[in-house]
């Protein structure tokens, strides 16, 4: 069997391997190499050392601004999305009428793509601001909170579904035992339920963390970075460095590598934390 499998290897693995090499593996390795070079078309690269990395921070403050904006946006979104999603899940696992209909409605926005979401919310937010004679590009804080609201609208239902699944796994006896021991609603939530759904909280936190950190479409459609580049997140800033300016491909690639390293660090942290939970169980 093992030998036969070896002979059939090409058939089973080659299609995926070739596609993976073309779209990810080779571009990834090239990307790392090119971040240390000056280039416009990949083939005309000249080695410049860490120059691009220095330029990413020193040419202008775009990258640092985008990084700061992204961090702020991510922190606010992660907290608000998870708090709202958990509360919704908690309410919906109680005996409330129409639970399924509510779930369906809350989850639905998650299926809509970022570009479409961006324009839907642009209309709504500009409509509200319009009655004060303003629009979303007047001040960066409008774009910031607009993005937060959009992100909540998109992700809350998704996280809610995960929290519901976790809450339903809490054995009903736990509530009874807590009640017999004299715990009230809040105490039983805090000391009985929360610890039991901790793994779900970890999953949801990291899911929202990486999703919020990597936002591009929503940012691009809602504000496009306006006013100026003040509401540009990292992904949009990298895109603009590549395609919105001339001769800065190397800097764009260096920014992309830094972006990748931050995301990888978050993923590593997640792996560490989740494996700790598995050991605890």
């Amino acid at each position: 069997m093992k030998d036969q499998l070896k002979r059939w290897g090409a058939v089973f693995i080659l299609p995926t391997l070739i596609a993976f090499a073309i779209s990810f593996l080779v571009p990834f390795v090239m990307g790392i190499y090119l971040s240390f070079t000056d280039f416009t078309t990949v083939t005309n690269a000249t080695f410049v050392g860490a120059d691009n990395y220095i330029k990413a921070f020193t040419d202008n403050s775009d990258f640092l601004n985008a990084l700061w904006f992204t961090v702020k946006f991510t922190v606010v979104s992660v907290i608000s999305i998870n708090v709202i999603a958990f509360l919704l899940a908690y309410l919906l696992t109680g005996k409330i009428k129409g639970t399924n209909a509510f779930r369906t409605v809350f989850f639905m926005p998650n299926l809509i793509g970022g570009i479409v979401l961006g324009y839907i919310w642009q209309l709504i937010i500009n409509g509200i601001l319009g009655s004060f004679g303003l629009d979303i590009t007047v001040d960066a804080s409008y774009g910031f909170w607009g993005l937060v609201v959009l992100m909540n609208w998109q992700m809350v239902g998704y996280m809610m579904i995960i929290y519901i699944a976790a809450l339903q796994n809490v054995p009903p006896e736990m509530h009874e035992v807590a009640a017999i021991d004299g715990a009230n609603r809040r105490q039983s939530l805090r000391h009985v339920i929360l610890p039991l759904v901790m793994p779900a909280i970890t999953i949801c936190t990291f899911l929202t963390l990486t999703n919020a950190f990597k936002v591009f479409d929503q940012n691009y459609a809602l504000t496009g970075g306006a006013p100026g580049k003040e509401t540009s997140m990292l992904a949009l800033d990298i895109f603009r460095t590549f395609y919105g300016s001339i001769g800065r491909e190397g800097v764009g690639q260096a920014k992309a590598v830094i972006f990748f390293l931050i995301v990888a660090l978050i993923a590593l942290l997640q792996m560490k934390l989740s494996s700790r939970f598995e050991k605890d169980e």
Partner: peptide, 11 residues
């Protein structure tokens, strides 16, 4: 875990 921006240009 690699963001798309990392490979978009070369890809």
């Amino acid at each position: 875990i690699v963001p798309f921006q990392m490979v978009m240009f070369t890809m």
